[in-house]
C-alpha cells in the first residue's frame, strides 16, 4: 500500500469526525422548536427522578439533591438550569454554570447526577391532548 494511500486512509476518517463534530455543534445551537415545551429533567443513576416544566415557573426554584456520595443544589428557572453548589470532589458541575439550551447536560460524575433541559412535544401535528 503506497504511503499516500495510507495517509488518506488515516486522514479522511479524522477529517470526517471533525467536520461532523463542527456541524453537530452548530446544528444543536440552532432552532428552538415551534411546538413543544421545555422541561428540566433530573437523572440520578441514569433514571429520571424529576421533571419540571419550565415555562410555568414564574420564580426560580432551588432543589437539593442528595445521594449516597453527597449533595448537589440545583436552580431551575423559566429559561435555564444550573448546579450552584455541591460537595463533590471535582466541581465540574458547578463550573458548568448556567445552561439555557436543550440537551446540554450538567453532569456530576461522582454523584451520578445529570441535570438537563429536554423538549417535550405534544405529538407534532396534534393541537392538544385531553386527559
Amino acid at each position: 500500500m503506497s504511503d499516500r494511500k495510507k495517509l488518506f486512509i488515516m486522514l479522511i476518517p479524522i477529517a470526517l469526525i471533525l467536520i461532523a463534530s463542527v456541524l453537530w455543534i452548530i446544528l444543536s445551537h440552532n432552532g428552538s422548536p415551534k411546538s413543544g415545551y421545555r422541561v428540566a429533567c433530573i437523572y440520578q443513576n441514569g433514571a429520571l427522578t424529576e421533571e419540571i416544566r419550565m415555562d410555568s415557573l414564574d420564580q426560580a426554584i432551588e432543589k437539593t439533591i442528595i445521594c449516597d456520595q453527597g449533595f448537589n443544589r440545583v436552580r431551575i428557572d423559566k429559561t435555564s438550569v444550573s448546579v450552584f453548589e455541591s460537595d463533590c470532589p471535582g466541581k465540574d458541575c458547578t463550573a458548568m454554570g448556567t445552561v439555557e439550551s436543550e440537551y446540554r447536560p450538567i453532569s456530576c460524575l461522582p454523584h451520578r447526577l445529570v441535570v438537563v433541559i429536554e423538549l417535550r412535544d405534544s405529538d407534532p401535528g396534534l393541537d392538544g391532548v385531553a386527559g
Binding site: S122, D123, G125, L126, D127, G128, V129, A130, G131
Partner: peptide, 12 residues
C-alpha cells in the same frame, strides 16, 4: 378542524 389526542389511561 383541530387534531386532538386522548391520553392513554394505561400509559398517560
Amino acid at each position: 378542524k383541530w387534531r386532538v389526542g386522548i391520553a392513554d389511561p394505561f400509559s398517560p
